[in-house]
Design a binder for these strands. Sequence first.
DNA 1: TAGAACTTGTTAACGCTTTCACAACAAGAA
DNA 2: TTCTTGTTGTGAAAGCGTTAACAAGTTCTA
Lengths: 214, 214
Amino acid sequence: MNALSDKTVGRLSLYRRLLNGLVADGVTHVYSHQLAVLAGGTAAQVRRDMMAVGYTGSPKRGYDIRELAQSIGAFMDAPEGQGVALIGVGNLGRAILAYFAGRRPHLAIQAAFDADPYKANRVIHGCHCYPMTEMDTIAAKANIRTAIIAVPATEAQAVAAKLVRAGVRGILNFAPIRLHLPAEVYVEDIDMTMSLEKVAYFSRKGRAEKEVNS
Amino acid sequence: MNALSDKTVGRLSLYRRLLNGLVADGVTHVYSHQLAVLAGGTAAQVRRDMMAVGYTGSPKRGYDIRELAQSIGAFMDAPEGQGVALIGVGNLGRAILAYFAGRRPHLAIQAAFDADPYKANRVIHGCHCYPMTEMDTIAAKANIRTAIIAVPATEAQAVAAKLVRAGVRGILNFAPIRLHLPAEVYVEDIDMTMSLEKVAYFSRKGRAEKEVNS
DNA sequence: TAGAACTTGTTAACGCTTTCACAACAAGAA
DNA sequence: TTCTTGTTGTGAAAGCGTTAACAAGTTCTA
């Protein structure tokens, strides 16, 4: 119920996805050490994360998969679903639309925006694309609090500031710059250049690590 | 020279990009606290990272930008440049190609592969696309040690294993599963679903954080 | 020259996350 | 029932990374 750590939330999201996969396979129960190998962690960490959501398993039978998945969902999802906006419908933006298209019912991209007026009023991968000028009004009307930024680095800061003014409280930022925003706005950066350079470095220097974005 | 931490390497990559931007603006020197605000960190952290690369600035004048960027480069880049392979030329793969196209000379995507034979032997965003069957031979010939996986989750594990057999030592994995590989292979996951769920969660629960992928 | 102002380099303290280790416990076997 | 086996839940310890704090140093001013 109270504040979870950044990393814990990430793992919970992962656990749920793994659990859904297990349900599809017809499995009904899982032990912490099994979930650990699937998630690439340790059994102790899994158990601690379960503590965080307050779900309790049974010794000798482990965790009830369906119950646990539901428990995580109750913890993470907005009860009424949550709309997301995408800003920037270039190469990357379109790939993001395709990636999330029809995937999650409770966390769908409801509107896309682009500065290029030629892209406006088209439907791309099932998502309506609006001109940037309408961002404020549409975001406010749909009560959107989460946004994905996929615009060039030069425009990202201005777009982010505009989003915050429109009521957005969390941003997934693909632009390769650090955004400067009020402290109450949560920003997660996905910096592909940085990630690739890290991989290249450790490819040469040879160090093993299990790492997750964020 | 010795093993740097994962996070430090990430920040060094970021610093260098910021420094290059400053050079373009004609600036010649920078203080740790200036670099810190650009990078979204603290001055102490910047200084500590400089310690890691062994570069030493001058009191009252700060760091010589050009020297520092060069110093980081000597630390991070392979002297002879480093080739990268991309596996999977779907929506996401093409966006990745476009993103990195012509950007970094010393860290370029040299070859792309896809299981779909219709995509083979075409040039996409300046990168030649080969059929998957030739992956081993081409990767070996070009001495590729770094790869980006952008295939569906169901195929990612098999592709990763094949890459490792072909000599790859570092993988940037966009597929939403955890790869199971020998410990000496470095894997960095970019899990967009997980990242978006984190952002959605904190959009509602309202917690501030500055976070970087990985 | 002496002093003021502001920086770097570095050690020590702090805080967060992960891991360890073990008591409590459930289910099956004898 | 009692014992054995293998699990969960959790306090305590360990590990890592960040932040604080300060001595040493450089430049400018007077």
